[in-house]
Design a protein around this nucleic acid. Structure first.
Lengths: 247, 247
DNA sequence: GCGATTCTTCCGCAGAGCGGAAGCGATGTC
DNA sequence: GACATCGCTTCCGCTCTGCGGAAGAATCGC
């Protein structure tokens, strides 16, 4: 294992659930000898990738946050999409999420939540399997067929009794998404909610998806036009002056 | 120079102005031999810290963005402050910013901008000298006196004819901030605007500051109560259940 | 088609990084 | 107050890893 990999391993030790770690904890998680960890962490802290809390424990530093903020698929996408997400949020008063595909999972880039909206699991920066969510279906429907094969070859994770786990049935859903342009996921993550998603494109193809999360008892099709309009708006913003996200 | 430092150097080559770089560009910026750069970049890309665009160029990857999102002083702070920032923004319809101190500079963590508000330089993730901005004054006024000495020992950068560059005068301003609780910076960054800032505390002391950016012709004192109320709200949220940001 | 430019692969040498050992300092226990 | 425990830091000699020159492949521009 190379030094670079060790360094990245140290960064990877920090998670949503454990954003603050002591030296020993980092050493244990990475299975690197304490001395090695000590040296690496020291270098990371000197640069600003990690910071020391008063307690002596380490947390992810501001400098790394700054660099992370340069990820075109993270903040770049978020910045351009924000106005449209806000409009959709304002009009409907429901949770709105924006996500991208990374391997077989979706990564949430932004979430706008209302006080009075249904509860929701995702958080900006968190991951979910691509199969069960509105955004996930929208992204998979337009993804490389080879990726879809790979995803469906593995057993699909179940969240509720309503979660669709049959590969053939999922393929049918994906076809429907391609036909109608919207992805509807009913009670697949939580029984109280369902989501209506749509893909977002830049000049190169589908790069993200947004969805609205609404109560299970409402009619999802009623939200389709608004979701589609927002998705188109973002797509237009991405195809605009500065071209695609990648450049 | 250690490998870890080299790795971080590569990450540091990506900036706001140049978020997408080719291998050769990275090599030139870091002054690392092309072969070395090639190897490091390869390892970073394998982990997900960097991604390859279709063009073959590299950009900051989603995985690094995720880890960066764990920075308590970045996203953690932002999440808890957001509702209060939104309220302030909604009520006043002016730009609202949230920032933390990093060395002698302020780093903007969030910015809410209105279509009809005055223009603004900052962007989430960008840096500014601490001396001339509303947030900067609010943070410096409650910072370690030794830091203030260090900041004022260096020549202060001038943005407009109204920028205060005299150390003694800046000290007087800081005193006033401590006395009144609000920091007012008039036309110091741009002649069309001024800002009203206030410090945000957690259990350990001042950790951030927010400010509102309003047109130069308005009366800044009129905004002080609203700004203070928002700052207090965020402070309360930070001192709450889960304690300080650091933990 | 041909030179210029950028990217990738290969490999032998050298010194950077590794990690065991030992010492330090804080906290908890009897 | 003495002792044990646990976590952090410093030190240093051996070894294996990462270094980067060279050469070749791929792509671009004229």
């Amino acid at each position: 294992m190379s030094v670079a990999a060790r360094v990245l391993d140290v960064l990877g030790a920090f998670t949503d659930a454990t954003p603050v770690l002591t030296l020993t904890e980092i050493s244990r998680r990475t299975r690197l000898p304490l001395t090695t960890t000590h040296r690496l962490v020291g270098e990371l802290a000197a640069w600003g990738a990690l910071e020391r809390a008063e307690s002596g424990a380490y947390r992810v530093g501001l400098r790394l946050w700054e660099v992370g903020s340069l990820a075109p698929r993270g903040v770049g996408l978020r910045e351009r999409a924000m106005p449209y997400l806000e409009d959709l949020h304002e009009v409907t008063r429901h949770n709105v999420v924006l996500a991208v595909l990374d391997g077989a999972e979706v990564v949430y880039v932004e979430r706008l939540s209302a006080h009075d909206a249904v509860s929701i699991r995702s958080r900006a920066g968190s991951r979910m399997p691509a199969t069960a969510t509105g955004v996930g279906l929208a992204l998979l429907a337009h993804a490389d067929p080879e990726l879809v094969d790979r995803v469906l070859a593995a057993p699909v994770r179940r969240f509720t009794p309503a979660t669709v786990v049959d590969p053939a049935e999922i393929r049918r859903l994906l076809g429907e998404v391609r036909r109608t342009g919207v992805a509807i996921s009913v009670q697949q993550i939580e029984l109280v909610s369902q989501s209506v998603g749509a893909p977002v494109r830049d000049a190169t193809g589908v790069v993200a998806a947004l969805s609205i999360v609404v109560p299970a008892e409402s009619n999802p099709h009623a939200y389709a036009p608004a979701v589609l309009a927002a998705a188109r708006g973002i797509s237009r913003a991405l195809t605009g002056v500065n071209g695609a996200l990648a450049r």
